[in-house]
Nucleic acid binder design. Sequence first.
DNA 1: CTGTAAAACTTGTATATACAAGTATAAAAT
DNA 2: ATTTTATACTTGTATATACAAGTTTTACAG
Lengths: 233, 233
Amino acid sequence: MKRKFQDIYKQLSESIEAGTFQTGTTLPSENELAENYNASRETIRKALNMLSEHGYIQKVQGKGSIVLDMSRINFPFSGVISFQELSQKLGTRTKTEVVYLKKEHATDHQLKGEERVWRVHRVRHIDGERIILDKDVFSVQAVPHLTNEICENSIYDFIENNLGLTISFAHKEIVIEEPSEEDQHLLDLNGSHNIVVIRSFTYLEDATLFQYTESRHRPDKFRFVDFARRVQT
Amino acid sequence: MKRKFQDIYKQLSESIEAGTFQTGTTLPSENELAENYNASRETIRKALNMLSEHGYIQKVQGKGSIVLDMSRINFPFSGVISFQELSQKLGTRTKTEVVYLKKEHATDHQLKGEERVWRVHRVRHIDGERIILDKDVFSVQAVPHLTNEICENSIYDFIENNLGLTISFAHKEIVIEEPSEEDQHLLDLNGSHNIVVIRSFTYLEDATLFQYTESRHRPDKFRFVDFARRVQT
DNA sequence: CTGTAAAACTTGTATATACAAGTATAAAAT
DNA sequence: ATTTTATACTTGTATATACAAGTTTTACAG
């Protein structure tokens, strides 16, 4: 009995994505689900509340849980997701080129309290064009060693599966800027006068900051999709 | 005993924003909070989970609830928020100009199933410059009448307080486009070659779609800030 | 003094119960 | 047939209990 409600969440979310429950219809009632999954109603409710938060359903008191249309937010994703996970959807159309990888002294304020950091610059290719420039700074304390090969694949995968760390949350900022000389040199800007800059601070399970990233996207290839619930006042 | 955990959430979130609980420290334990607020531990946990979702705290098993730094996401906001609510923070530096307001037949696919819709175009002024063009389409079924004055103030406020409807959630998309002739005519583009377009579909409590919005921002004045938790797989 | 083990904390999960509140359905009254 | 009323069903909230799992502190053995 360890991750029961998370398993139920996973099963239900996958069922909704697979179309087993159609958009606009209601899920079985909480009591029915409790019987089906051999769980208490509270456990079911935890799973349903997760579905609600992530935009799968809308709960209406007295009526039931209405299945929402997830197709809009299926791709790309909101939340913390890596280019590697994104490229799995695009298959062989993506490539990562490591243009810089060095252990340095922390000169800037980006990862305060850290003495030494990894600095990684990667150019992301999509369909043969250089679209994204990712400039990462990792805490050496959290990530002791890093190789070219790891950077070409997924650093997140390495961190989570090899180092056993759990990436938990991120603060993110999206702004539009003028392309730098570095952008013009490393990316195929294709005449774009602007660049989309996503700055993010990523934290581990224990709330320690371990990564600062500046992800610089060619504007015509950028799309951010979000689901948000209105905060009650 | 109706909105106990929501009240506790509100009190705790305001305390954190006010700095009563300092960043990096832990909140009182769940059992202590339960005593303080005269509530059960489960009720406290519901409030704490809301704080966690919204980026106020990070819960660590065995340790406690660590207070996070909210200053980064304080302004501007993520989630569903209106220009009116935003302008309250900027005071008298903002102005809204209604450039179009008419009840029309629904011609496009934006609000499917609707026969008649309100179409509202508004130019948002910040510090004397025309920065944002908001193009809204409202369901006439949900919003029977609309006046110039309502549009100059807050349509959301009118909908929630006068019509008694509850805005619940939204799907949102952010992309970068070339400025249209309309953009060039109605906004002070200040030499910008791009425009930030936020397309959003807003839904009521019962999951009915009632609004489609295209919010077009001058790129140098645009900033989107987000807090996101990593989805477990 | 040091290292280990136990105890005392913390949050995480699962269950059961009770009632409130909103919606839909069926029965009854008109 | 229509309206009203009662009933059943739905989700929302609050509480209590038990145990699991992770962290910190304390006690103890060496």
